[in-house]
Computed example of a mutant assay.
Amino acid sequence: MELGIEGKTALVTGAAGGLGAAIAEALAAQGVVVAVADIRLDLAGSVAGRIRAMGHRAFGVAMDVTDASSVDGAFQEIEDQAGSPDILINNAGFTRDNRIGKMPESDWDAVVDVVLKGAYLCTKRALPAMVAREWGRIVSISSRAHLGNPGQANYSAAKAGLLGFTRAMALENGRFGITANAIAPGIIDTAAVRQLPHYERIVENAKATLPIRRIGCPQDISDAVSFLASERASYITGEVLHVTGGRY
């Protein structure tokens, strides 16, 4: 299917590995120029180099999504190299799990700031150029955890907040040809998940209980992102797409 985004510029945050890297690769394969952004510039540069080795266009950029000056500096660099992003993927996020009674305030702040403040700062910075050209795609990576997970109050709250943020952006900016959607992945077979001590139990549980009897793979998410970022999804906005194998 022709997605109609060849030649567009995309910014993918938290793209030094995992889902972010897979999303960056998928968009680049569609002919998009991809800014691979992460607080770890060396790893972002490695992902961008791998994409270029495949014959596509990408470059790494350093960005701390919780710091407005860092976000602005990264956007300036992207604009200098490839023009203002047409597509913004708010992917940056991580977990620091604990029961609420044992959760340090710093762990609450760290997770919520990266997921929610990061999406706010990046979207705010990306919107003026999108409005001016009357075209834009904002896709935020939420999680099935938005429904609530024990031991993940910070992560669940942040990912649920992304859904409200997404719907607000859809309502505010639809008249400018800008769509805003979210994807809620289930358990995905990333390096971080494979390092969990109970990884094998996760895989066996997925095979035994999910309607689609397997754990998800990064391409399941990157394919969904590519569609929502495309011309084919121009009448879809304010939605959350669960990519979970049927797990709710």
Rank of each mutant, 00 (worst) to 15 (best):
N90K: 14
F176P: 03
I187C: 01
Y235R: 07
G164I: 03
R137C: 02
S140Q: 14
F94G: 04
V36G: 05
P128I: 02
V131P: 10
N205W: 10
N149G: 02
G83E: 02
N173H: 15
Y120I: 01
A182W: 11
V115R: 03
R214S: 12
D189G: 01
R125E: 05
Q81E: 15
R50V: 04
A15V: 09
G118A: 00
N154D: 13
G49I: 06
P150N: 10
I23H: 09
N205T: 14
D42R: 15
G83F: 13
L3D: 02
V65R: 00
A206K: 09
R194H: 04
G73K: 11
V12C: 10
A129W: 09
F75K: 00
G60C: 08
T13E: 09
A206Y: 13
L162Y: 00
G83A: 05
A233V: 08
A129E: 10
Q152T: 00
V240Y: 13
M63L: 13
R40T: 05
V12H: 10
P211K: 03
I212H: 07
T237R: 14
N98H: 06
E172D: 11
Y235V: 02
L43V: 05
T13C: 12
A129K: 05
L116I: 06
D107Q: 10
D107E: 14
E134N: 12
S106T: 15
D109Y: 11
L116Y: 14
N91D: 09
L162D: 02
V131F: 04
L163N: 03
G17R: 14
Y235H: 08
D113G: 01
A182G: 04
D67G: 05
A29D: 12
S234M: 08
D107A: 07
E77P: 03
A208Y: 09
A92F: 08
A74D: 01
C122R: 04
Q30S: 03
E79H: 09
D64G: 02
L121P: 00
G14M: 12
K207H: 14
E172T: 05
S234I: 03
A21F: 07
G246L: 08
D97C: 10
P211M: 02
I23Y: 12
M169I: 12
V240R: 09
K117S: 02
N90H: 07
C217R: 11
K102P: 05
E105V: 13
D189Q: 04
D67W: 11
G216H: 06
A44E: 06
L27W: 06
M103L: 13
N173K: 04
I141Q: 00
A184W: 11
A28F: 07
S230C: 03
L127F: 04
G49M: 12
A208E: 06
A145F: 09
S142Q: 09
L19H: 13
G151R: 12
A153R: 08
L11E: 07
G73A: 10
G20W: 15
G7R: 09
A119C: 13
G83P: 07
A24K: 11
D220Q: 05
G7W: 14
A170P: 06
A92D: 07
L228E: 01
T95P: 04
L88S: 00
A229P: 13
F75D: 01
Y248A: 10
N205L: 09
T237P: 05
I141A: 01
E172W: 07
K102Q: 08
L163E: 05
L127Y: 07
A158Q: 05
G174P: 03
G83Y: 13
L210M: 06
L41M: 15
R232M: 08
I221R: 03
G20K: 06
T209Y: 15
R144T: 01
W135E: 00
A74Q: 06
